[in-house]
Nucleic acid binder design. Structure first.
Lengths: 219, 219
DNA sequence: GACATATTCAACTAATCTATTGAATACTTG
DNA sequence: CAAGTATTCAATAGATTAGTTGAATATGTC
């Protein structure tokens, strides 16, 4: 009977055994997306992305919703993202290569200290700090830190004029291993803005019991 | 750079993609063991068990220690067992087949209600309840619930005479999916003992912050 | 109904994985 | 040093997986 258990759990292990599928899961942690969007974001060919999504679907790790021509893939509940984070945590503890990658992110200049996150929220509410969400807007709409402004990295240059120079700017993206916020901070500081990177993405933020909003930018 | 991350995490996924390796990890959660012991307990051939252990070693999920002819495999730290439990938890939430297996265990007669575990400890200390650890003795020595008596299932019949009839007996083994305690309870009740099964194994017990002892039975 | 679009399927090739078998290695014992 | 024991390695065959290519399917538009 317990052979069955290991057989079933191995289904999940197999689903997690491909770099492509892990990247898809990581993206879906930020919010639901279509196959086209996932293909674009990951660089996988269309057919290949679809194939991997079917594998994840067979393992019950994703759900689908069809709207007209478009199929939207989403994570069925938090357990899948929690599992992805457990896998990543294990990697951080057991694999020097993962620790090294994380170290590179953390040693990058202008990373926010692991400050009390609620203090950050408070300063954002007071207007003392501008919080930028530099992910693609569909991810912002799915979930974002309250008070954050959506300025996708690819639009950052065009939006610089709208950013106040006198205030500190904190940028975040998909989490500890995402380069978007690093890039944004680099760009902002090159233009003499005071900027820093927040390591947390939405899943990490949510896991700490911190508040999360959704929908359009309320500005 | 983040492609690297997924590549590295996929190493861990691949290690977890085999039923045989998951069973080995599950056993090692109970304590260190030799190849021979692992082979016997899992039913894998010697060479096959060794091969899978080498894969786990390459993924940095196990460590080895050689003593004379014998190689002892162990989990390097709690993160590996925590990951196994995260995988199992995901299975419980996402796979009907895993939920069904768990249901079969929970619906078995004479399973202890998820009672306050500290109350159980108290009653064991008072001598009101006899707590039996029915795993192989080497697992008991590695770690056990304080106050538990080691009576491996295969020796239970021979040890019946030493068990008091007037007291309640609670048996536990490797965790929610282990049949040893179910079998022990069945046997005990057939001989008119008052017996029940505790679902928790040592990893589950430890994860709840409950105390764990190690070494020989102190009776 | 033809055409366009989004997605999935099927077939193929190459790579990877699993279990077995027999050999090799490392260590112990007499 | 030979023999025994525990473990790992290498080779093999068969099974499974990954990515590509082209076809098929489902839906929308005109």
């Amino acid at each position: 009977m317990t052979k069955d258990l290991y057989q079933q759990l191995a289904r999940l292990g197999k689903a997690a055994a491909s770099p492509a599928r892990l990247q898809l899961l990581d993206l879906l942690c930020q919010g639901p997306r279509t196959v086209e969007s996932l293909s674009n974001e990951t660089g996988l060919s269309f057919a290949n992305a679809s194939q991997h999504l079917r594998v994840l679907y067979a393992a019950r790790l994703v759900e689908t919703e069809k709207t007209g021509l478009f199929v939207t893939y989403r994570l069925p509940d938090d357990s899948v993202c929690s599992f992805f984070q457990a896998l990543r945590s294990l990697g951080e503890q057991r694999l020097a290569e993962v620790e090294s990658i994380l170290r590179q992110f953390r040693d990058a200049p202008h990373s926010l200290e692991p400050v009390e996150k609620r203090a950050l929220l408070s300063r954002v509410r007071k207007g003392d700090v501008i919080l930028l969400d530099v992910r693609p807007e569909e991810e912002y709409r799915a979930a974002h830190i309250p008070g954050a402004v959506s300025v996708p990295l690819k639009h950052l240059n065009a939006r610089l004029a709208t950013l106040p120079r006198g205030k500190e700017i904190v940028a975040y993206c998909r989490g500890p291993y995402c380069v978007l916020a690093l890039e944004a901070v680099r760009l902002l500081r090159a233009k003499q803005f005071r900027a820093a990177r927040l390591e947390d993405g939405i899943p990490e933020w949510r896991a700490q019991g911190l508040p999360v909003a959704a929908g359009q930018d309320s500005r």
